[in-house]
């Protein structure tokens, strides 16, 4: 199955594979299926965009592929780990070592400066104080905030806050970067800056960036676009490819 979805242009093994994933939310007696036997694989070093109307299950898919949520049935493999078999602590450790997250809200601690926001998760990765600070500085520089590192969230614009959030994820040097609607709270110019940064991260760091968004501007910058509806993938297009690929069931 994965071999069918992996095109010849990327001979490397997929970093994330989902196999017949089902997920439903239960509210009282009402059971709402969100994902119906969805399968897909994500290739390394690409910016993959999952797009679709709201309620189509794209955020749930992101939560499952990143190990934030468990599946009802089916399997998810990420970087060779079977996520369904990891307990809470092991999942936390997996996320600490391998993943970065960027959310729609920036979720920055009001009391910390930009540098400290980025440094904080690094402290928990077992890096030395020196190294954590150095990495945080580099990361903020990369998102173009080297002159704002001493400022707190209240002194930053929305776009700058999102760049701090990206720097926080990036500084961990993760193999996988998950972004959920990273531009939806931003104006056009700031949204464009964020899109460019995500694109650069995938291409210069070799990070696999999986982004959920309905922002049409992101489509043009993505290596691959998965269109979702009603818990299924409708189309799977690769940037520069001549024809859309067959959707996976």
């Amino acid at each position: 199955m994965p071999s069918a979805t992996a095109p010849l242009a990327t001979p490397r093994a997929p970093v994330i594979e989902a196999d017949h994933v089902c997920k439903a939310f239960v509210s009282g007696k009402l059971r709402t299926p969100v994902l119906n036997g969805l399968s897909l694989s994500i290739d390394p070093g690409e910016l993959t965009l999952i797009s679709g109307p709201s309620g189509c299950g794209k955020s749930t898919l992101l939560a499952i592929l990143s190990g934030l949520q468990k599946v009802d049935s089916g399997r998810v493999r990420a970087l060779g780990s079977e996520l369904g078999q990891l307990d809470l602590r092991a999942l936390e450790h997996f996320r600490l070592q391998h993943t970065g997250f960027v959310f729609q809200g920036f979720n920055l601690f009001p009391a910390l400066t930009a540098l400290e926001q980025v440094e904080l998760p690094l402290n928990h990765m077992g890096l030395s104080k020196q190294e954590a600070r150095e990495r945080a500085r580099r990361s903020l520089e990369e998102v173009g905030l080297s002159h704002r590192i001493k400022l707190r969230p209240s002194e930053l614009s929305g776009g700058e806050k999102q760049r701090v959030a990206i720097a926080r994820a990036l500084a961990k040097e993760p193999e996988l970067l998950f972004a959920d609607e990273p531009t939806s709270a931003l104006d056009a110019a700031n949204g464009q800056v964020i899109i460019d940064i995500l694109h650069t991260i995938a291409h210069t760091h070799g990070t696999t960036v999986l982004c959920v968004s309905h922002d049409p501007r992101l489509v043009a910058h993505s290596d691959r676009v998965l269109a979702m509806e009603d818990g299924r993938i409708l189309s799977d297009r690769r940037h520069g490819a001549d024809a859309p690929k067959e959707p996976t069931p």
Binding site: E92, F94, L96, Q97, F101, N107, F109, H124
Partner: peptide
């Protein structure tokens, strides 16, 4: 007041214990 920030840290792998 900081539940979203804490949750973000947890998403990034910082344990609930910490």
């Amino acid at each position: 007041g900081s539940v979203r920030e804490y949750a973000t840290l947890n998403a990034l792998g910082v344990g609930v214990g910490a």
